[in-house]
Each structure stands twice: as structure tokens, then as C-alpha cells.
Amino acid sequence: MRRLWTPAWIARHVAMVVLVVGFLGLGWWQVTRAAGGNTLSFGYAIEWPVFAAFVVFVWWRELRHTVRAAREEGATPAPPAAADAEPAAATPAVRRPVRVSRVPVAPTGGADDGELAAYNRYLAWLNANPGARPGDYPG
């Protein structure tokens, strides 16, 4: 729980309280305006408490995330596996994208469509020149 009393977290706690109180106050102000005859204020009277609830939701989620991270850091490591056991594969938290080389596909069906061939040459040129704009195409 010490992590929740750092200067950064104290600022988050204070910001959450100020925002929630402010949003609820604005919601109450809209209720009084709606009671005075301003029909548009009925929508705002609902909107401000929703904003306050969202602030509480984000604050609570960040709080839980910090507590979980602290728990995982303090967790004791698992006992070593037996010598004959297969080692468990560690799953990385962030995976790198897979790069696949593209191989041009040979046309099928023997269709000799001039427009299609020109369009395919245009697409092949765009693929070969990734920084180029379509207006730079020489053909």
C-alpha cells in the first residue's frame, strides 16, 4: 500500500476527488437549471454524473493495476522444475510483429485483361516504392 502514497499517487487521489466533486456539483447545477424551465439541462444533469463515474472507474482501474504489479514483483519465484521435465516456454508480454516476405502470385485462368495487367503493374510499382505517392507513377 506504500505505492499508493507516493507524490504521484497523492496527486491522482486529489485530482480524482476534485474532479468527482466538481462534476457532481455541475450535475446538481444542471438539475436546478432544469427545474427552472431549461429543458436542455435535463441531458446535462445526466451527463455530469456519468463523467464523475468515469473518473472513479479510471482511478479504480489504475489503483488495481498498481496493486497487482506490486503483488507480482513481491511474488516468490516458482521452485525449480525437475531435471527431466520440459521447461515451460515464457510468453513475452509484448510480441513483435511477424514479417512475411511477399511473393507475387502468378495469374491463373489465362485471362489476358489489359486493364488488369496495367493495374497489377501499378500495384507492383507502389509496393516496390513504399515512399512514393500514386501521382509519382511513371506509367
Rank of each mutant, 00 (worst) to 15 (best):
L24G: 05
A11E: 12
T6E: 03
F51T: 12
R2W: 10
W60L: 13
L19T: 15
E62N: 14
D136H: 03
R3H: 11
A15L: 15
H65T: 02
G131R: 02
L24E: 08
V58I: 15
F57M: 12
P49R: 11
W60P: 05
Y137M: 06
T39W: 04
T32P: 02
F42W: 11
H65R: 05
L26S: 05
G114N: 04
G37H: 02
Y119K: 06
A124F: 12
E86P: 08
L123Y: 00
P107G: 02
R64P: 00
A52K: 05
V100M: 00
W59G: 12
R95F: 06
F57S: 11
V55S: 14
G110Q: 06
T32Q: 03
A45E: 13
D84R: 10
V55L: 09
A70M: 10
A11C: 05
T32K: 14
P138G: 03
P87C: 01
A82G: 02
T32N: 13
G109L: 04
V98C: 08
V18A: 11
P138Y: 04
G139K: 06
F54T: 15
R12E: 13
P77C: 01
N127K: 15
L63G: 04
P7K: 07
A82N: 12
I10H: 14
A88C: 08
P80Q: 00
N120A: 09
T39G: 15
P104G: 00
G74D: 09
V56N: 05
P7N: 00
V31T: 13
F54I: 15
W125F: 06
A93Y: 08
W28E: 10
D112Y: 15
T32D: 04
V56L: 15
W5F: 14
G109I: 06
V103G: 04
W60K: 10
D84I: 08
A34D: 07
V94E: 09
G114M: 09
A34H: 11
V17Y: 07
V100C: 01
N127L: 12
S41F: 03
A70N: 09
F23P: 05
A88N: 01
R64L: 10
T39F: 04
A111N: 14
A15H: 12
E115Q: 07
T6I: 10
Q30K: 14
A78M: 06
P79S: 00
A75V: 10
N120T: 12
R68W: 05
A128T: 04
A75D: 10
V14H: 07
D136E: 00
T6S: 11
R12G: 14
P77N: 03
A45T: 13
A117D: 06
A124Y: 04
P77S: 04
G74W: 05
R96E: 12
G27T: 03
A11T: 13
V31R: 12
S41W: 13
W125G: 00
R12N: 07
A69Y: 01
A69E: 03
V98R: 09
G37W: 03
W59V: 05
V50D: 14
